[in-house]
Structures are given as structure tokens and as C-alpha cells.
Amino acid sequence: MQINLAGKTALVTASTGGIGFAIAQGLALTGATVIVNGRSDSSVQKALARLREVAPQASLSGIAADLGDAAGANTLLAALPAVDILVNNAGIYGLVDFFDTDDATWEDYWQTNVMSGVRLSRALVPAMVERGWGRVLFISSESGRNIPADMVHYGVSKTAQLALSRGLAKRVAGSGVTVNSVLPGPTLSDGLAAMLEGERAKSGKTLEAVAAEFVMAHRPTSLIQRAATVEEVANMVIYLCSTQASATSGAALRVDGGVVDDIL
């Protein structure tokens, strides 16, 4: 299958590293014009430099904006051209016991993980509908199906993304715009690598081996019994952004290595 997105413009939020960067890279290699987003101009410029190394012919630009509040979303929207593909990847996570999560913590997670996608979709999707083509992706998590006891607040925000994605897909039904969610499981992103660095250094094992041990300790239902790579997650997203995925909308597609133990 050859995916060609030449002539399409894609915005990938929080794309200066990790899964977001892998998605931006994959889209750039399909010929799409890619807009990178991060919280600081420095991180955006570094990401653009990395992308130009692997996709020197790609059309790339970047916008610095923190999507944790309405002001940041408005900053991003004010600088955007017309967008055909919106990948809502911005999100935060962290281990905090339920009884230690105050209202401010819940609000931070809600604003970043849920409202960033609400604001951008509300602003950008109507023009996609008018043009008769568009792709909207929400990067949720297997934690949205399998709420983790050690970060209930995070799981709730990721479940909300699934509802948002399905509802928006129904709202634009028949328009040529598809809306889907992707649910990664444990993924060897920059954040997980940093968290495991101490154990890697102490044990002398490879990062991949330490990550696999972490997965089996904390997500023992994993069928691949290792962490996914960011590229493996991005591959699903790139397909859903393609013209070939035109019959897939309102779906929640897992790239969780089989962590969620059900058949649907």
C-alpha cells in the first residue's frame, strides 16, 4: 500500500518528541505539508531540524503554543493555514493517587487532554466539512479502556477523548471527514525512556529489555510482551490519515500490544 498525502496539510499537536514526532515524520514522508507544534520555539525548531534530516523534500513549519488553556489554543489557531488533517496528540500524564489529586490537577488534565482537542476540532473541522474531506485523530490510550488505579485522573481524560471522537464522527457523518481515536499501550517514548534510565544504567541491560520487564510487571496482559515503538503507533495514525482509510470513522483502534483483554 502506497500512502500519498501530497497536497494535504496536517497539524500534529505536541509533535516535538515521542509519538507526536513519529507521526509528524510519517506524514512528512507521505508528502503532506506538516505543521509541528510544541510548547516552546526552541523545541519546535529542534524538531523541524530533525525532520528535515529524514525528509529533506518535505514542506514543514512550526508553531509554538501551549495547548493547556484557551489562550494557547487561540495562539495556535491564529497562526494556522487551512488544515486537512488534525492529529490531537497533546496530552499530559503522571502517577498520582486518586486521594492526592486536587481540583487543580483534574482541571489541568481536562484542559490539556480533552479541551485542547475540543477547541481545535471546533475551529478546524467546519472548513474540512465544507471542502468535503478531512481527517481528525485523537491519540487516546489503552488507559481509557483499562483505567489505571494509580492515575485515575489520566484514565478518565482518555475515556473522555473516546466519547469526544465518537460523538464528533457522528456529528460530521456523511461529510467526507472521518474522526477516529488511536489507543497506544506502553510505548517506548521519550518519557518512558527517561523514567527507565536509572534501572537501565543500574542493570546494564538494553533499554528495550528494561522496558519489556516494565511492561510485564505493570501490564502483564500484554500479548507482545514488550513496549511498542513510537513508529509502530505512528503507522496506525498515518493509515487513518490516508485516503485508503475512508471507510473507517468513529472507531477506537488499539495499538496496545493486546493489553486490553477483550475481543473488541
Rank of each mutant, 00 (worst) to 15 (best):
Q2W: 00
L5W: 00
A6Q: 11
A6L: 01
G7H: 04
G7L: 09
K8Y: 15
K8R: 15
A10C: 09
L11A: 08
T16V: 08
G17E: 10
I19L: 00
A22H: 07
A28L: 08
L29T: 12
T33W: 00
V44F: 07
A47C: 04
A47F: 01
A47H: 04
L51S: 00
S59G: 05
I63F: 13
A64V: 08
A65I: 13
D69H: 09
T75D: 14
N89C: 11
D100E: 15
A104W: 08
W106F: 13
E107F: 01
N113E: 04
M115K: 13
A123I: 06
P126S: 12
E130Y: 03
R131S: 11
G132S: 01
R135I: 09
E142Y: 05
E142A: 05
I147A: 01
P148C: 09
A149Y: 07
A149K: 13
D150H: 10
D150F: 12
V152N: 02
Y154W: 03
S165T: 10
A173F: 00
V177P: 01
T178K: 10
N180K: 10
L183H: 09
T187I: 04
L188M: 08
S189D: 14
D190F: 06
L192E: 00
L207R: 10
E208H: 10
E208F: 05
A209Q: 15
M216Q: 15
A217G: 14
T221D: 15
A228H: 12
T229W: 07
M236R: 07
I238Y: 02
T248N: 06
A251C: 13
A252K: 11
V255M: 05
G258F: 11
